[in-house]
Simulated assay, not measured.
Amino acid sequence: MHEVKLGLDTFGDVTVGDDGTRLSDAQTLRNVVDEAVRADEVGLAFFGVGEHHRHEFAVSSPELVLAAAAGRTEKIHLGTAVTVLSSDDPVRVYERFATLDGLSNGRAEVILGRGSFIESFPLFGYDLGDYEVLFEEKLDLFSQLLAEKPVTWEGTTRASLTDADVYPKTENGITAWVGVGGSPESVVRTARYGYGLMLAIIGGSAERFRPYVDLYHRSLDSFGRDPLPVGVHSPGHIADTDEQAWEELYPALEANRNAIGAERGWPPYSRLQFQHDIGPEGAVYAGAPETVARKIAATVKTLGADRFDLKYANGTLPHAKMLHSIELYGTKVAPIVHDILAAG
């Protein structure tokens, strides 16, 4: 097996302090930067920050948070999880990430997606009836911008461009992915435009996503493209023992799932569901370092993944516990994963 890269993702969940009271958005943002610093210190490969526009999450401008992290880190790659391209402007997205790439000495990455929430569409004046065409056209334009040459483009969702050049230029280009939740059409589109495939696996077993990985590789081949990386994004939490990790994570995850579930008609989250989710057939990677490492390694082998990003922030899980989780992920989980994969 090749050596998989291990990363982290956060949506900037607004959490609670030691006394159980809700932290301010401002303190949450500062904590996210501290978490990126810890991830860099323990040798992890990637730190991703999501974009949201709702009260549970403090990060609405991930590039600003990542720029702050760039000034305090040295090696870790910094990106989004995801940038909601449908409700943004591709030219501005490119310019922001090219700026981040320069500030971070070439460590910027962007994961583009449509997002799992829809608040940004009315907030920025977009019609949800244009959901598909917005992403298709904007992804097409962004793909051309990545070449860093003058672009001529015409569509229905923004003003046309004629021989337009954008700045700043990067030194070695920007690494770009598309986040996919499990739509075959999205997988084929990702291959057609030549992006890395980032699978958001937040429910069920990793094995059920293998057909999408196979479809991606077949599609790349049919479009005459070279092989491109496959990544996985899934939630989890690490503590010194299985029981400690589960007891720390469950209340935060329950609150988070129930808040979102109330909007989407989900049944209340339960201990029974949690036990399934942390098991072999579930999508939550929680437990002691060896437990989490074995599950990550199994997922990597099943999907042939090149990167695994652990969504370490879950609801109101306190900052100190997240820092410890990051520490264990880099110092204990990562070496075990690499040893398991090296042993075949």
Rank of each mutant, 00 (worst) to 15 (best):
T156Y: 03
Y131W: 11
D306A: 03
L310Y: 00
V337S: 10
T162S: 15
F209P: 04
G17P: 09
T21N: 15
K138V: 14
A70G: 01
Y285A: 09
D89S: 15
E35Y: 02
P184S: 10
M322F: 01
S87M: 07
L128E: 14
G194N: 04
Q144K: 09
V82I: 15
Q244I: 14
F223S: 08
E137S: 13
E137P: 10
G203P: 05
H237E: 02
V37I: 08
A259H: 06
E171I: 04
N256R: 06
T80F: 01
V230W: 00
G179E: 12
F57R: 11
A286W: 05
A320D: 15
W177R: 04
S205V: 06
R22L: 13
R208H: 13
A164F: 05
R72A: 14
L85T: 08
L29W: 02
L310I: 07
V213M: 01
G43T: 09
D130S: 07
G203M: 11
A98Y: 02
A298R: 11
E207R: 06
G79W: 00
D88M: 12
K295R: 14
L253K: 01
G344Q: 07
A343S: 14
I111M: 09
D19E: 12
E56Y: 07
E281D: 15
D242M: 09
T21D: 14
F124K: 01
